[in-house]
């Protein structure tokens, strides 16, 4: 079940990017995305765990590049989301390998996929909303948001230190 979901997510990360770059007459970049996607798929079957992080970074980078080139932001959002979920599933399947044969993995898989589907759906909705809804914010609000972001980061680092 996980391997199917992971394959779908990798394809969701790869195909929109490749299609977008083909549309913009950048076939080399498109082929590069396809090759990297296929290598990612292959690496998951060969259980090369490090490949997922690399694949996600490359696809996100390619998506960021796509914004600069002018590709459809919807395609890019789907690509980022797909690669993020594929990266998560790769790590999840790595964790599942520690399970004993008699463990009820279907339950864990089901819980995980449901949570992931929820996050994916909400992310997609919010991203689409962010792309459609345009707000003009003042510099003061921008400053406030930046401060909140920095404080949030500090809080997160503190919490991580505690946990480690």
């Amino acid at each position: 079940m996980i391997i199917i979901a992971e394959t779908i997510c990798i394809l969701a990360g790869m195909l929109p990017l490749a299609a977008g770059y083909f549309q913009f007459d950048l076939p080399l970049v498109a082929i590069g995305c396809l090759v990297i996607g296929l290598l990612w798929l292959l690496s998951q079957w060969r259980r090369l765990d490090w490949a997922a992080s690399l694949g996600m970074l490359i696809f996100t980078g390619a998506s960021a590049l796509g914004v600069w080139v002018g590709l459809s932001p919807f395609l890019l959002a789907i690509s980022v989301l797909g690669s993020l979920l594929a990266w998560d599933l790769a790590d999840f399947s790595r964790r599942l390998r520690r399970a004993a044969p008699e463990d009820n993995l279907r339950l864990l898989e089901k819980q995980h996929l449901m949570r992931l589907a929820g996050v994916g759906g909400l992310s997609l909705a919010l991203t689409l909303a962010a792309l459609i809804v345009r707000l003009q914010i003042s510099f003061g609000w921008l400053l406030l948001l930046a401060i909140v972001a920095i404080l949030g980061l500090l809080q997160l680092v503190k919490r991580l230190r505690q946990s480690v």
Binding site: A64, V67, V80, V119, L124, T127, A130
Partner: peptide, 10 residues
């Protein structure tokens, strides 16, 4: 580019 900010959401 606001689109880049939108990509951060997921």
């Amino acid at each position: 580019r606001g689109e880049l900010l939108a990509l951060v959401v997921p």
